[in-house]
Design a protein around this nucleic acid. Sequence first.
DNA 1: ACTACAATGATTACACTGTCAACATTCTAA
DNA 2: TTAGAATGTTGACAGTGTAATCATTGTAGT
Lengths: 199, 199
Amino acid sequence: MDTVKDGKAYHHGQLREALILAGLQLLNEGGVAGVDLRKVARMAGVSHAAPYRHFPDKRALIAAIAEQGFASLTTAMRDALASVHPTDGRAQFRAMGHAYIGFALANPALMREMFSGLTVDRADFPSLYTASKESFGLLYGTIAQTFGEPVELRTVITFSAIHGLALLLLENQIPLTADKTVDGMVDASLDTLIRGFGG
Amino acid sequence: MDTVKDGKAYHHGQLREALILAGLQLLNEGGVAGVDLRKVARMAGVSHAAPYRHFPDKRALIAAIAEQGFASLTTAMRDALASVHPTDGRAQFRAMGHAYIGFALANPALMREMFSGLTVDRADFPSLYTASKESFGLLYGTIAQTFGEPVELRTVITFSAIHGLALLLLENQIPLTADKTVDGMVDASLDTLIRGFGG
DNA sequence: ACTACAATGATTACACTGTCAACATTCTAA
DNA sequence: TTAGAATGTTGACAGTGTAATCATTGTAGT
């Protein structure tokens, strides 16, 4: 069950990171319900109250995990961008959509937490909101270069379409068949938007 | 704090409905975290173990509340449909989108629970999945009549776009300004889809 | 109308979890 | 070198979900 720190120094050294990692593992295994502060502490090799030196409460730990998730999502989208020709705007547009969906399907529980209301009051976790905006910025750049104004609006529309598809897939609300695959629906959705943007 | 049953008959009569109602109230007030089984029981004027005669566990009560939510959502969309001219397909299309977003903004916590993973294993709550499909069916009908094939795919695309916009709005992830209103974005999104569908 | 049984509700109890207060240890800056 | 800040531990408490057992009421079949 341990995750980090098998030595027994009184001070852990990087307990905060270890807690986030352990929490992420529990999240992946059993969803939010599986994230148990005391278990997280145990996995990090530390007493059950130690986490309170790094997070004011459980929600703050979840927020830190979610922030990590947004960073991973941004990385995934950046990698996708880098894998297509830098002047092919439509290819970049598609690559980001697929990367977003791919991330969601690969990290369902994490994805849920990232959009579980933690950013509603932005002052609660300022860095979380900042992290969440980075992936938005990536898409914004591609749309600006490929489709033009109104960039902001088109970015919101695209983000919504992909995000909604991702979440409905996570809900198992979209029946998949041989001719209705995830990739097919992503392509169809993005193509509809491209056409709708007049592109 | 009471919600129902001030008389003190041993048998409540419609405890199940009372519990759902009380749970919904707590959900609206304090989100999922505010839904406390014992408090729900107290609100219904019943002992803290009585709910277990109607729901195997807390999750099942939440599912029942969510099911009620899907019914309300369907009603809202049906009402919206009835409020526009029955032969104006695009108007129906728009009306349903606005109704969906309106419902989400009016019932944020409920909306979250409706899409909190309860339908992932459909066998867990069969009637919940059924209820969730009704609103989908409404949109399907409108799209079939207005835009034609591929109907199923276009319904998924539209549903995703609207659902994603709704959830991102609930997350406070979409900054609103004087010229970027909710209704404006809904219209822009739907117009993009209409154009993308070749309509 | 009577009676067994099903349905529903109450009491009691338990384990788990988040959180706080008080105390211990270690690190660091003056 | 040492005082105070950081960090970690121990112990305790209240709240919550849930199971076991018992109590009451409704109802179907005679």
